[in-house]
Amino acid sequence: MGKEKIKINDEFYDIMPPEYQELVEEATYGKESRGWKDVGEAKELIEEHSLCAGCPESIAFRYVLACLPKPEDTVMVGSTGCTSLVFPHVAVHNIHSLFGNQNAIASGLKRTLALRFPEKVKDVVVLAGDGATVDIGLDMTLQSWFRQEKFTTICFDNELYANTGGQESGLMQKGFVGKMAPAGKKFDKVPLPEIARNSGCHYVAVMTVSKPNRVEKAIRNAILVAREIGPTYIQLYTPCILEIGKQMMEGLQEMRDSEGPGKRFEFKEYVSDEAKVFLDEMDAERKRKKKALRAARAK
């Protein structure tokens, strides 16, 4: 797959529904500088979504899709959960795995793509909820990191099993009482970012999605590091407003309230030495290009 293949046969162009024509004409496939600022400006790779009104996961999904460095050469692997309700509407190749199996699927997929398209860069991105990443799929998640599989794992952490009614998950905070967890969580939140670091991830970041610039940088860093060096992990707080008793306009504030100093989603980033060298080089290269462009414009 590549941008050159995202086109409609001339004979059928006029009968295609407008959203597909827009996708071909206005989507940001192949645009090097694509990012969250394209949201609302260019055709998005998500047509509609079937999440609840005001769900922070929907905006997280839009940011992630807007920030993929090469969506036309990316395959996303999803799992059961609220995210799986969105994937059918996404204009990026994606695979729905068995619940919890997403990192195992992604491992095989990444290796196969490398064999099938040795001359191309193909990114694999896992996007799953906390139940799939930390509870049911923890074995697959960890094993893929131990094996240094070169793909990114993104966890939408809403701290419970949202679309089945609010059962306790490993990432639920201690003491929280869910609709289907009336006794309250008796254990601490699983420290998956720390586990990721110790399991061999080269880039790890924890944050909410209240600051799109930060999300964009983390997504790009994670995918580029995974492409060149090894596994990466991002944990994004996407609160389930229904399960924590918030209104549809309160999702953003909930995220802001959870990311202050000492709070459980305070921004944290870990970069391995190897990844740091790589990212510094990328940064220097980007600055060189920018400077050259500015100089060319000045002439």
Partner: peptide, 22 residues
């Protein structure tokens, strides 16, 4: 009812089929 394999120009054969279908 043309489907994705002939609507999208993803290989030379799909383009030829599209011409014939039209």
């Amino acid at each position: 009812f043309p489907g994705p394999m002939v609507l999208w120009n993803w290989n030379p054969k799909s383009a030829k089929k599209a011409t014939a279908i039209k």
